[in-house]
């Protein structure tokens, strides 16, 4: 490899580090809610403190247990979302691309209306 290639690679890594630091900074703060989005539209916001199972659109099932949210079921063939790490108080995002479902951690500073009437508890 040439010197300029090593510089190029180092540049990408430094950029990734800065990007990571910036996003980590904005993600600070304990998350106590998760927001589920389907097709870019909000499906519902749920408290992490309460153990429950949420059926999302009949395609995915999200489970909250011991303050952590996980995707436990998905009808897509790859099941990638089910293997993504759980969302705890550090926040995080679980994405199911085929069904366009996004679960993300929401911090306390964003008070969202907690919907409980309109979802199905399986």
């Amino acid at each position: 490899m040439k010197k300029k290639e090593i510089l190029f690679i180092a540049g990408i890594l430094v950029f990734a580090l800065i990007l990571w630091a910036v996003t980590a900074y904005f993600r600070r703060g304990t998350c106590s809610f998760i927001r589920i989005t389907v097709n870019g539209e909000e499906y519902g916001t749920y408290s992490l403190a309460e153990d429950r199972e949420i059926s999302v659109n009949g395609t995915n099932v999200c489970e909250i247990r011991d303050g952590r949210a996980k995707m436990t079921e998905a009808d897509c063939p790859d099941h990638l979302c089910m293997r993504q790490s759980a969302i705890g108080d550090q926040g995080g995002t679980i994405v199911c691309l085929p069904n366009r479902v996004v679960i993300e951690g929401v911090s306390d500073e964003e008070p969202e209306t907690v919907s409980s009437e309109f979802d199905t508890v399986v």
């Binding site: 690679i9 990408i12 890594l13 950029f15 990734a16 580090l17 990007l19 990571w20 996003t23 993600r27 989005t37 097709n39 870019g40 995002t93 994405v95 691309l97 366009r100 996004v102 993300e104």
Partner: peptide, 27 residues
């Protein structure tokens, strides 16, 4: 493309991880 289709920018949090993995797999 994922950000466009999902209409959700929060998946851009993956960007640093994907940049580093792109370098490693590219090498």
């Amino acid at each position: 493309v994922a950000a466009l289709i999902m209409e959700n920018l929060s998946i851009l949090y993956y960007a640093p991880v994907l940049l580093v993995s792109g370098v490693i797999t590219g090498l």
